[in-house]
Design a protein around this nucleic acid. Structure first.
Lengths: 245, 245, 245, 245
DNA sequence: CATGAATGAGCCTTCATTCAT
DNA sequence: TATGAATGAAGGCTCATTCAT
């Protein structure tokens, strides 16, 4: 193996490692303080590199934050994929995806802190085109995976196709999940709703929507505890923490 | 009646009028540009008062923005109250509240632009205690109104009480509504879900959740178009715009 | 006289005074250090105002520097105008304008330091449209004044019209003057050319060009010392310094 | 001959070649963007060497730019020398040098972009002593060549020696040339003076000055078109482009 | 000798907030 | 009470230069 090839590979590896280090610390700051309440100087100190080095990886603060968000989204899509491969009925698989959403909220809480930045035009303008596309791509992956299960459910007559389109059903599931996570973060709402286990609350809402879509077998007719145990064991063995809490 | 008392009262009236003027323009800026992309100078110009005068009404930019948000929330609670007085079954009244949510999203779009700020600790720290409480108060009003209808529905056996608690049901409705509004704003989601009428999409999701809660009469068993016409006519006569679109 | 009018006027006056103070110090820095070797912080310290105040007068460092340059140009045009009103033959009046050029170089040396910035596109982009136009306007004034004298000289047959156009003649005078000032600043050239009095050197060159244009009465046929004394006495009584040196 | 000496020589040759490569690209950047709007990184990319290598040739960006300028100046001096050897009267030879100036402006336009930097003390401080001297040396060469022709013209009574000294005459020619090039670059001046062919405008001004110096035979008495054709053919056969334009 | 990752001083600009008038 | 000039901290980003490999 030629020396320069090794060198190249090592440097690339180091570059990758450094980029991940930066992303990790940026994610932490995002979780702890949101977007505004930290600056590139502080991040540089945290990663023990200089500001200049940061800018060799990312073209702007926004570009960096978008990269964090996209990373999270990639995780989510990966979890979605794993969940979609769960052996079971379509409703059981959608349930597995529900778990994936909770896993996402648990492991990538910063995403919800960034979400609104993603709606501001000025934010996107400051990010590089490359990262914009990467983000869209991961978003589309998530949607597609869930949508395919819904389409299959309709094909198998496990969900009626006369009330809602597959897209409406997918949209309902996406909406209730995002909304539940958002609401779950509001201290006041938690008090009023008497929520002690946020993830549980999210999953209940997903069940309500699935039942509302008449996705068989209905939650109110069926005991999903066995399924849940299998999902945890087979798909998210590391998820016990939030599931038990 | 002493002259100075009259003066005082007039001054108070003028103060009120000015405060509302400021809030109106701040709301507009919030809608048009979000939180960052305008400053107190520009707001002062817009209201044709000086910056100093602005600070006689609000202790900081955050305080001002929170006041705008609270105003919106007060509107929402007011609309909820009107909707709750609608003559009809509990499900019909919840439906009226669904209308109120859409009315809110239509008339107070800035609220969604401010939402994230409301989650940042540093934001709340800069607002006055007075406004923080006012905000919480209006939030609680909204919750309570919807919650009462759910409780009543359960009392009347229009919604089963064995599957979910009243709080769970309320939370599900709140979550799906917020989530739907949020998702509805994402261009990519709109494309993927084929959404042309966002408000319609929100209301479909509310129906799905209500059906999921088994709130009778179910949407899939019942034609609500007459109810909807009545809601519009009796509660939101001015809502036609977004409803027709 | 209403109180607020007085106030207004006083504030405006103060604003003007401050703007001039800023320009004066900026001019000094430009002379001493060129464009790069000072920053807005240092200027702010020099004028004993804050950076923010600087930016209430000028939109950028470039805008400020352009304002200095335009001020100088305005002076030049004013001096040109005064010179053009000198009582005498066209050649004598052009001679008076030659004095004005020297006066300009003496009183506004920073202009030559800024000149090249004025050729960089990125410089102009950062200045406000308003100042760009003001600069062009003063430049055009200078040209016009000199050009009119040349045209008149041709009309009176004091300069032949068969060799060069009026514009060519004007351009030659402008070029030799600018070039002489530039070259005069080069220490090496001064040594090689044995220049002790730069202004004198500039004026000799102007004479050479006028003679080259065959502008009567020729320098080599005529003693202009009386004219020069009159110009100094009547047009630039304060110019003695550089003239005597 | 020892092996390492050969190697050394080859390495030296390569070093030279690389230095020229760097200078060539730096000149291009100077022409295209001036001094500020490019950085060492971009130059390194352009020459396909690393930044470190750049710094083995030049001690700083300023040092590098000065080297470019000196190179140009060396060209100018070389062209002056060739022109000075032109067979003809002194005035014809000065005419050939006028051509050389145009050739210089055409082939080394970056020199005019760098000129101002050369006046800033901070620029010179950052360049190496070696390069500073090299630059002065080439500047002096140019002056000397022209000056010798003037001296000779006076010796031969082709130019009167009673009006101006040889140095004054040389200085006038240098000044008008530089000034004409500078003015010729100003868009506004070009418009006002109706200049379509900048080089032509420069040469007209040189003629005016020579006539002003009474350098025989005068331009207005003599047809120089034959001379010009010879100069082009014999001294600057490659100059046709700008001359014809 | 060549490399290019790492550095960090430096700069322009913004804007919420204050306070003398 | 209303004003708006003045403030100055803060922050994103650049880039010439260095030096370990």
């Amino acid at each position: 193996m030629p020396a320069d090839l090794t060198t190249q590979t090592r440097k690339e590896r180091e570059f990758q490692v450094r980029e991940e280090l930066i992303l990790t610390h940026a994610r932490r700051l995002l979780i702890e303080r949101g977007f505004q309440a930290w600056n590139m100087e502080q991040l540089a100190e945290a990663v023990e590199y200089s500001k200049g080095t940061l800018y060799q990886h990312f073209t702007s603060k926004e570009d960096l934050v978008l990269a964090v968000a996209t990373d999270s989204l990639r995780n989510r899509a990966d979890w979605f994929e794993k969940a979609a491969r769960f052996q079971g009925s379509t409703r059981e698989r959608s349930r597995a995806i529900g778990f994936a959403c909770c896993e996402f909220a648990e492991k990538c809480p910063e995403y919800f802190h960034v979400e609104m930045m993603l709606k501001s035009a000025s934010f996107w303008e400051k990010a590089s085109e490359e990262r914009r596309q990467a983000h869209s791509f991961q978003g589309a992956r998530c949607w597609r995976i869930l949508n395919h299960i819904v389409v299959e459910a309709m094909a198998l007559n496990e969900m009626p196709r006369d009330s809602f389109t597959a897209e409406e059903a997918t949209f309902a599931l996406v909406s209730v999940t995002v909304g539940s996570h958002v609401m779950t973060q509001e201290p006041q709402i938690r008090v009023q709703a008497g929520i002690t286990n946020p993830m549980q609350a999210v999953r209940i809402n997903q069940d309500i929507v699935c039942d509302g879509l008449n996705w068989k077998p209905l939650f109110r007719d069926h005991d999903y505890s066995k399924t849940d145990q299998r999902i945890i064991a087979e798909v998210f063995p590391e998820a016990v923490n939030w599931y038990k809490a």
